[in-house]
Simulated assay, not measured.
Amino acid sequence: MKLIIGNKNYSSWSLRGWLAVKQSGLHFDELTVPIMGEEWDRLKHDMGEVQPSSGKVPILWDGDTVVWDSLAILEFCADKVGRERFWPKDETARGMARAMVAEMHSGYQSLRRELPMNIRRRVELPGLSEATRDDIVRILTLWAEARARHGSAGPYLFGTFGAADIFYAPVVTRFQTYGIGVPGFAQAYIEAICEHDWMREWIGAAEEEDWVIEQYEVMA
Rank of each mutant, 00 (worst) to 15 (best):
N118R: 11
D69E: 14
V137C: 06
L115C: 11
F161M: 11
Q187W: 04
R138N: 10
F185N: 07
W198A: 10
W202H: 07
T92V: 12
I213A: 11
W198D: 10
T141H: 14
V33S: 03
E130V: 13
G204R: 14
P34C: 09
E30I: 07
G159D: 04
W18V: 03
Y178E: 01
G55Y: 03
M1I: 06
I180Y: 00
K89H: 13
Y189H: 11
S11L: 05
L115S: 04
P88Q: 12
L125S: 15
R147D: 08
I193M: 12
V50F: 14
S12N: 05
R133A: 08
F158I: 11
I136S: 04
R133D: 11
K44P: 00
W87P: 01
S54G: 08
G48S: 12
L140S: 12
L31M: 08
A72M: 10
I190T: 06
A169G: 03
M219E: 07
V21D: 00
F86S: 15
R120P: 00
G151R: 09
R42V: 09
V66Q: 05
H105E: 01
F167W: 03
A144S: 11
K89P: 05
V21N: 00
W68A: 09
L43Q: 00
M1Y: 08
K56F: 09
L157P: 00
G204V: 10
S152A: 15
R16Y: 06
L31F: 03
L142T: 03
M1Q: 10
E201C: 10
R98V: 06
E124Q: 15
V171P: 00
H27Q: 12
T173P: 00
S53M: 15
L115Y: 08
A148R: 15
S129C: 07
E214F: 07
A146S: 14
I190Y: 08
Y10K: 02
V21M: 02
A144H: 10
